[in-house]
Amino acid sequence: MLERVLIAGSGGQGIIVTGKILASASTRTLPCVTFFPSYGAEVRGGTSNCQIVLSTNEIPCPVPSRVDSMIIMNQPSMDRYRKMLVHGGLMIVNATLCVSPAKMAGTIAVPATGMAERLGNIKAANMILLGVYAAHRKVIPAEHVEAEIRAAFSERDARLLSVNLEAFRAGLAYGRNR
């Protein structure tokens, strides 16, 4: 099994934390996991991305040139990275912020920012998309992702944790109904 994932959007959308949660959750069941962030001069509003590779075998390169799945949170990221998706790959798009979601097969458009706003925190759009991803690519059990969300947010703020969990579950439900 080899699953290469790209998560991309703008700085402040929680791109890195989403990738870390996915990677951490995967270490519970998979022997080989890598996470690689874009690093350096990232600022809020700039671009941000990370790549995660999940595998049953040794992973030679943590920065693959092609990916099997992508979670895209804004239009510039879609324009820039869509060509990296393999034929038949899965693209999950934040339709609220992407004016022209690609009309490629395998694209799932989710109004994530709008959904997150209704849940009470616009910044939880990332967890909605992660939920949709978990529902579609059954590489890792949803309860493992939930455990990592708890680990990531529980120390900071109970309210923050609950909205992120709620968002993840909303994404799961959205994904399962599609």
């Binding site: 080989c32 690093y39 943590p62």
Partner: peptide, 10 residues
Amino acid sequence: DGRLGQMMEP
């Protein structure tokens, strides 16, 4: 190198 420094693995 920067890649080894920045990447995460178990």
